[in-house]
Amino acid sequence: MEDLIKKTRTYRRFQQDRLISEQTMATLIDLARLGGSARNCQPWQFMPVTDGGRCRAIFPFLAWAGYLTDWRGPEPGEQPSAYVLCLLNRSRLKGNEREAHFDLGIASQNLLLGAMAEGIGGCRIGAFSPKLADLFEMPEHLEVGLVIALGYPAESVVIEPVEGDNIRYWRDETGVHHVPKRSRTDVLVDLPWRS
């Protein structure tokens, strides 16, 4: 599990012509839906997209890699071969929306871990144009909360230690993507107990 978690990085360049089967997409959706849910509301629904034309229609509405200011996103040939649209079904909310977003974190991580177990990389994209919804006949009770881009990776992503307080990811001259992660010492906290 530790190795799988270490390999489950954010991938943004893919082998676009290498398709993901409908069966694999169905399995990934199952992994997402089986995650824990506050009050067991299960307010998230998922729409897999594997058709090339539809993937190309979604792509212009997405923003990619905010820290890589000179990069506009993957070029043709390196774009995702599939997406999962994560749709919040407001009619299923029984608690507050904040709880639903915890559920989405669990669901999306389950999906991405399952994808990486099959050699498929992914990228959670929360930066997208609201006009993305205009591609669909969207009922009022549904709204797009997250887009997950998927594909077989066409890049290497490595974990680096954080130097100082610099958490910005970068690409080196060979195109390897470096992601700084804080050390265990930096994330552990030992608060004094009140007597």
Rank of each mutant, 00 (worst) to 15 (best):
P43N: 10
V144F: 01
S183F: 09
R56Y: 03
P192W: 11
A82S: 12
L111F: 05
D165N: 12
R72V: 01
L31H: 11
G114E: 08
L132H: 05
D3I: 11
P76W: 00
Q23E: 15
Q23F: 07
N40Q: 15
L135R: 00
G77Y: 05
F128C: 00
Q45T: 15
S195E: 14
M25W: 01
V158Q: 07
L112K: 03
A57T: 08
G77R: 07
E137V: 15
R9F: 04
P139R: 12
D70K: 11
M116R: 14
C41V: 07
L132Q: 08
A115Y: 04
I120K: 06
L135Y: 02
S91A: 15
E97D: 09
V176F: 04
F128Q: 02
C55L: 06
K94T: 15
Y67F: 14
K94W: 12
Y169F: 11
E99G: 08
Y152P: 02
R184E: 11
R124A: 13
A100Q: 02
E97C: 00
L191T: 10
G53Q: 07
I120Q: 03
Q42D: 12
P80R: 01
E160K: 10
P161M: 09
A57D: 14
E137P: 02
V189Y: 09
I125Y: 04
D103S: 07
R54L: 14
A65M: 11
R171V: 11
V84R: 01
D3W: 07
R18F: 03
E78F: 13
V84Q: 01
P153K: 03
L31W: 09
G36S: 13
G73T: 00
F128V: 00
